[in-house]
Amino acid sequence: MSETVIASPPSSARSPPSGAWVGVIFEGACFAAATAVLAALSGLLISLVIGGWPAIHKFGFGFLTSDTWNPVTEVYGAAGPMVGTLITATVSLLIALPVAGGVAFFLTELCPAPLRRPIGTAVELLAGIPSIVYGMWGLFVFAPMFSKYVQLPLMSAARPGSLLETLTTGIPNGSGILSASIILAIMILPFMAATLRDLLMTVPATVRESAYGLGATTREVVMSVTLPYIRTGAIGAVMLGLGRALGETMAVTFIIGNSHGFPKSMFDSGSTIASTIANEFTEASGDMHLAALVALGLVLFVITFIVLALARLLLGRQEQRL
């Protein structure tokens, strides 16, 4: 701590005497960069509203509550894709968060030093794989295995009339809501794991070591020292994952089954907002069809915004409590 305090004054004193205008330019450039983001964001929002206006105007609030999506009669409702988006994002988060936590704790607390670098790199590599590759892998490799080892055993084990049977009805070919969520979980895992690992690294060694010195076990150190220390940052990591899961397009499109109603079971096919737009945008020739797709984009924008706002709110509360 004290080091940084000493280090900062000389750095500013070292700036060249004729550097006043450099400073002005630097400040201006930073300001321009920040406002450019704002301008892009508001421009995006405005063009989404303008592009989607015909659909919003025609269907009104019903656009959000109807699950009819019929390009032939030009009647559009976003409820099916909205529900699909929220379900897949939530389920994928539920799957990915514990694993990401495990990876991060293993890497920082338990991992033997020679293994730390290879595993860390592997996690980061996973983050760099393009989503279309996940989609193709999901369709050609994951889906047949999922069908054989998960869907068929579950479906044959389900007693008629039981809850399990309701949850597992569908076509046993490896596609559907749950498969899409699992693929999504694999995709958001590296982001969350890497962020959580970096957060855990910020826990000062002295804090951890004093806990160990008091005789705490690894589990106790994790649960009562490091976890509370990184709590606020961890919520940020989760939101990062959720943000990606909400907007993920290609991988989901390949595997979710793409039907526009409400999904009725884990194995039923559904759709997400992003997959619907990706599927239909290129060939949408009717004006209303295009407007409905743009309005769908607006809905996704708003959902993402609400999620981020909620995250901020939670973060704020956490900080107050601390």
Binding site: P71, I171, S259, N279, E283, A284, S285
Partner: peptide, 14 residues
């Protein structure tokens, strides 16, 4: 008839 329709049954592949 259209280049995408509201399918009564089935699942969609990309």
């Amino acid at each position: 008839a259209n280049d995408s329709v509201s399918w009564p049954v089935g699942l969609g592949g990309k």
